[in-house]
């Protein structure tokens, strides 16, 4: 069992290394694209704020930093959700022709996602350093928030993957919700504590405590949702493990359908 796990990790590492090499060969700007969308949104929203169009509520951090942190965490989460699906889609040509440990391709893609999260994390830390300085404690909490976003997204995506591969409509629906999610989550504003549907959505949203903790740590204040934060991290770990087990079990059924859908 241990040997086969090591083999899976070794294969994943090799796939990852070669994919990164392939990606790097194709583009000049490379890592810039990982952070460009978040930067663009931040710039846009900040301008709107300055112009008085958007009123995001009181924030402990300077608004641009507030938005950057929120949107980056959300994007990390969204990218992680799609990892399992993209891994299988990308390997369509050889999934149906060679028998190998399928978890390896998901792991390889997850590594790519982790690198992307790391780049975004570094950007945030750099910006924080510029704006107000930073201490080790804050770095640790923020890094943990990003890690939590990755594992949470990975787990949810892995559990959904067999069904998103089978039903294209389902996949589209998920993608749509994730893009709406940017507005439903407090990525760009501070939520006012109120009742109703919105508050309920917020309570159920596992990414919210991650954002909230990262922002609190960056601002140097006490964590407001520490309990929920812990829950979100545990949820991330559990869904990831469950997701991999599910994929390992049902992969042949999914792959059969991939055969039918064309090579």
């Amino acid at each position: 069992m241990l040997r086969s796990s090591m083999a899976v990790v070794a294969l994943a590492w090799r796939l990852f290394a070669l994919t990164i090499s392939a990606k790097y060969r194709k583009s000049f700007l490379g890592y810039f694209w990982m952070v460009a969308p978040a930067l663009a949104i931040t710039a846009g929203v900040t301008l709107a704020n300055r112009a008085g169009i958007i009123n995001p509520g009181a924030t402990a951090l300077p608004y641009p930093v507030f938005v950057l942190l929120g949107t980056l965490i959300w994007f990390v989460f969204v990218e992680a959700v799609d990892v399992a699906h993209q891994a299988f889609e990308g390997a369509r040509s050889y999934l149906t022709r060679v028998c190998f440990s399928r978890e390896a391709i998901i792991l390889a893609r997850a590594l790519e996602c982790a690198i992307s999260a790391l780049v975004r994390l570094l950007l945030v830390l750099f910006v924080l350093l510029l704006f107000r300085g930073i201490d080790f404690n804050a770095v640790a909490w923020i890094a943990l928030s990003f890690a939590g976003a990755v594992t949470l997204g990975l787990g949810i995506g892995a559990l959904l993957m067999p069904f998103t591969m089978l039903f294209a409509d389902f996949h589209q629906t998920i993608k749509l919700w994730l893009s709406y999610g940017l507005f439903l989550t407090p990525a760009m504003y501070q939520p006012a504590t109120s009742d109703g549907v919105f508050a309920l959505l917020l309570k159920l949203n596992p990414v919210w405590p991650l954002m909230s903790t990262a922002r609190d740590a960056a601002a140097g204040v006490a964590l407001s949702h520490a309990h929920a934060f812990g829950t979100a991290l545990i949820l991330g770990a559990m869904t990831t493990i469950a997701g991999f087990i599910v994929i390992r079990t049902v992969a042949p059924i999914v792959i059969e359908r991939m055969l039918m859908g064309g090579k």
């Binding site: 090799r14 796939l15 060969r25 390997a91 050889y94 022709r97 060679v98 028998c99």
Partner: peptide
């Protein structure tokens, strides 16, 4: 098993022949 069903499985055109050998054989 060496499945000849899968000649060149995993080959990525953008990578070199050398890299593709490693890729393909790792998969196998």
């Amino acid at each position: 098993i060496a499945p000849m069903l899968a000649l060149g499985a995993g080959f990525k055109p953008v990578l070199s022949g050398r890299q593709n050998i490693f890729l393909n054989l790792s998969l196998l």
